[in-house]
Write a protein that binds this DNA or RNA. Structure first.
Length: 257
DNA sequence: CTTAATGTTGTCTG
DNA sequence: CCAGACAACATTAA
């Protein structure tokens, strides 16, 4: 589920735990196989909680612990979901799907709920492998991410989803951004004009702000039409459904060029 | 019953 | 070397 907006909600939920000391960690051995045999977290104080793209980062004295929720992970603090404020609410949070429990000395518990066990916890993740966070996008960053001015034929959507170029945007956010910017997600990214680049960069900011305020990545204008037979919320024509950058893509052939 | 799902990674192929 | 296609991960909802 989580894209940048959801992961930021996890971070906000957990910010009050900064300063607390970790007492004990119960870890699923698949989700947490990125931690070495003996967890180096117990006894450590949480010094900071950061986010880069979709990666949540916990600063400890000697290590950084990375938590990536992938498709189905969600974070809870004392049983409260960060989604309390978001529209998306995972199906009844089930005890059996809690893959990680971090017990703090003060009695609070940070938990990771992940039915599909796709989430991953890693020790000292390579933060440099991720491109700049999408909330910090600038013209220069976007020009580089899209390889403007080269002969690359890679689709705009594929570039925007490429976490090593720009991090944090997922399938729903990218479709919404392209829709609002009137850009065809399948177009070669390198061929965008200066004006289109300007529109795109403004739209990334607008979409992140609006959907963030509204309650998450699934609150875009396109969301309710993201199914076979769905129609454009603006002009009413049948949306096209295709695969771009390996992901299911909905777009309006009328309004997006 | 079948299909697709807000993500990443590895493998294979052209 | 690059891009695209596909599977795998494990479960649910339509």
């Amino acid at each position: 589920m989580p894209e940048l907006l959801e992961v930021e909600a996890y971070r906000q939920l957990l910010l009050p735990t900064i300063g607390a000391r970790i007492l004990r960690v119960e870890a699923d051995n698949l989700v947490c196989s990125g931690l070495p045999g003996r967890c180096p977290c117990e006894g450590q104080q949480i010094l900071g909680i950061r986010r880069k793209g979709k990666l949540l980062l916990f600063d400890l004295a000697d290590h950084v612990v990375g938590l990536h929720a992938r498709m189905t992970g969600s974070v809870l603090l004392d049983g409260t979901s960060a989604f309390a404020k978001l529209r998306y609410a995972p199906t009844v949070s089930n005890e059996a799907f809690v893959r990680l429990r971090v017990h703090l000395e003060d009695g609070r518990v940070i938990a990771l709920h992940d039915p599909r066990r796709l989430a991953r916890v890693t020790l000292d993740p390579d933060e440099e492998a991720l491109g700049p966070d999408a909330t910090t996008v600038t013209t220069e960053i976007l020009q580089r991410a899209l390889e403007i001015g080269t002969h690359s034929k890679v689709a705009l959507k594929a570039r925007l989803l490429d976490q090593s170029r720009l991090s944090g945007l997922g399938n729903l956010l990218v479709d919404e951004i392209c829709f609002q910017a009137h850009l065809d997600p399948a177009r070669p990214a390198a061929l965008l004009t200066d004006n289109e680049l300007f529109t795109l960069i403004a739209q990334i900011g607008t979409t992140l702000r609006e959907l963030g305020a509204r309650g998450g990545s699934d609150t875009g204008a396109l969301q309710d039409a993201r199914h076979a037979g769905g129609c454009c919320p603006n002009c009413g024509v049948l949306l096209t459904r295709s695969t771009v950058g390996g992901r299911t893509t909905y777009a309006c052939r009328n309004e997006q060029q």
